[in-house]
């Protein structure tokens, strides 16, 4: 089979690392061969984070080759733009509509791309773009920190994998007291995607 390539991008502290762990574990539970690779920036918080996840039979390289991304899952708008060149013309983009200014922008040394520029670049890259209000959906459930699971819920609706598989992986990966919150977040994302597909 053709390997399915996910690129997960965001900013340190947004929960991208857990998201790529869950994506890899779901792939394994769904009987794929799986490889995963995380590239963390120097700083613990505020740096750019990049996660590669591949599902296939078999998977060779642990990193998604340049230009072969099937699903770009971006946790932040600027980090979505940065990796558009990696996305196949048939690829799908999910982007959390959140802006996090880098220090250079805060200090007035650089300019954050405008909303028009953002929309145009995404439209030019792919016909399958989903602008997920993940922070709002997470806040509706009661905790903005679970925006990562909201996004995974949205991704899950694009695959023919039983939701129970995703739920079981989630239950294994989060602390018991946060299981319910995260399951709610997952379904909020999943339902949003079903309504917007």
């Amino acid at each position: 089979m053709e390997t399915i390539n996910f690129l997960i991008t965001g900013v340190g502290g947004q929960g991208t690392v857990l998201a790529s762990e869950i994506m890899a574990a779901v792939g394994l539970a769904a009987d794929f061969d799986v490889k995963k690779s995380d590239l963390l920036g120097l700083s613990v918080r505020g740096g750019a984070v990049l996660g590669h996840v591949r599902w296939g039979k078999p998977v060779y390289s642990p990193i998604v080759p340049e230009g072969r991304v099937d699903y770009l899952i971006a946790f932040e708008k600027l980090e979505a733009l940065r990796h558009l060149g990696q996305v196949k013309s048939t690829g799908t983009i999910l982007v959390n509509m959140q802006k996090i200014f880098p220090v250079s922008v805060s200090a007035g040394e650089a300019v954050y791309p405008s909303d028009e520029e953002f929309d145009a670049a995404l439209a030019k890259t792919s016909d399958h773009v989903y602008k997920v209000p993940a922070v709002d959906l997470a806040l509706q459930i009661g905790n903005s920190k679970c925006l990562n699971i909201v996004l995974l819920g949205a991704v899950s609706a694009l695959f023919d994998i039983a939701p129970e598989i995703w739920e079981d992986v989630l239950k294994e990966r989060v602390k018991p007291k946060f299981v319910e919150l995260n399951l709610n977040a997952f379904h909020a994302g999943r339902n949003w995607m079903k309504e917007n597909m």
Binding site: P65, G67, R82, A121
Partner: peptide, 21 residues
């Protein structure tokens, strides 16, 4: 060879590492 796509906007601000708060 993977297709090289010219779709990434130019001159995006970097997100260079910095000392943590």
């Amino acid at each position: 060879v993977a297709e090289q796509r010219d779709v990434t906007p130019k001159d995006l601000p970097g997100r260079s590492p910095c000392l943590c708060p």
